[in-house]
């Protein structure tokens, strides 16, 4: 790299045709990914009359939509709902998935393998199939239209348990045994010794879970009935059914909703890339 940087001629001579193809493909991919986001942002800066004017840069940009949406109590409420739900479910996953993963990875007990396979097999059942039993359960327990109703199916996930189990298997037993000799109890060993050693996996799990719940639509839509309990995606979709489709409002809401994920990505992209790689390697 250093050599190449010192001589531009050398840089050109080193660029192989394969590279050019790769860059072109990546560029096209990038454009495909970014265009909808650009349109979202652009539409959010237009008023209702300009929505079908497909120029990327609005003829008369306005922040009215933002003022209106942020001034609308419902939107703030949905934003808070989504935040509460995503944060709680993420914390719950980080805690329980790793606790179960650790137990499966580090303790020998009868039936361990069966438990693991049972957990893993739930990965093969599509969400659409689970929604009905979830709904019946929620309705019988009186959880319909409550935070808990939205959160309970995701409080622990098979994928998270599997991911954490794989990671804890990589923690050398000596660490745990040394801690046992030093007098730490089993829970403290997990919390103080094992957990810090799998931080990359924990951050990956936390990021995936947060993003997954932030953008979740199907189940929150089904389990909520009152507008105060909508999450952001469900709430935004309601702009499309009341009266007419208010694209500028939807896009403004979506732009604001994208902010947290964007911030998370900017600060934690290192971990996301690592998490994807790890999940790919281990899975």
């Amino acid at each position: 790299m250093k050599e190449a940087a010192s001589s531009p001629a050398l840089v050109l001579s080193r660029v192989r045709p394969g590279r050019i193809v790769a860059w072109t493909l990546l560029f096209i991919g990038g454009v495909i990914m970014v265009t909808p986001l650009l349109f979202m942002l652009s539409t959010s800066l237009k008023d209702a009359s300009q929505v079908y004017d497909l120029r990327v840069i609005p003829a008369a940009p306005t922040l009215d939509n933002y003022v209106e949406i942020l001034g609308d109590g419902r939107f703030t409420r949905w934003f808070i709902n989504s935040t509460i739900i995503a944060v709680i479910v993420t914390l719950s996953n980080v805690f329980f998935d790793s606790l179960v993963g650790y137990t499966l990875a580090k303790f020998q007990f009868r039936g361990r393998y069966i438990v693991f396979i049972a957990i893993l097999s739930t990965l093969m059942i599509p969400t659409e199939m689970l929604v009905l039993p979830w709904y019946l359960m929620a309705s019988q327990f009186g959880w319909i239209d409550s935070y808990w109703g939205i959160m309970f199916p995701g409080m622990m996930t098979a994928f998270g348990t599997f991911l954490m189990k794989q990671f804890f298997e990589g923690v050398p037993d000596d660490f745990l045994e040394a801690a046992r000799i030093d007098g730490l109890n089993e829970f403290t060993i997990w919390w103080k010794i094992a957990m810090p050693l799998v931080t990359p996996a924990l951050s990956a799990l936390a990021i995936f879970t947060f993003l997954g719940n932030w953008t979740a639509f199907f189940w929150p839509l089904i389990v909520t009935t009152s507008a105060e309990l909508y999450t952001l995606p469900v709430g935004l979709s309601s702009f499309a059914v009341e009266q007419s489709i208010q694209w500028e409002k939807i896009m403004t809401g979506a732009s604001i909703a994208t902010l947290p994920t964007l911030i998370i990505f900017l600060f934690l992209q290192r971990y996301i890339v690592r998490g994807v790689m790890l999940a790919g390697l281990k899975g």
């Binding site: 050398p172 000596d174 040394a178 801690a179 000799i181 030093d182 730490l184 010794i193 810090p196 050693l197």
Partner: peptide
């Protein structure tokens, strides 16, 4: 193990990478 009043040194050291030397010894 904790009730036997013994101390053990492992082949791969088993010192915790996420805390300082002082904290490791303090364990």
């Amino acid at each position: 193990p904790k009730d036997r009043n013994i101390a053990m040194v492992f082949q791969n050291y088993a010192i915790y990478p996420h805390v300082t030397v002082a904290d490791n010894i303090a364990f």
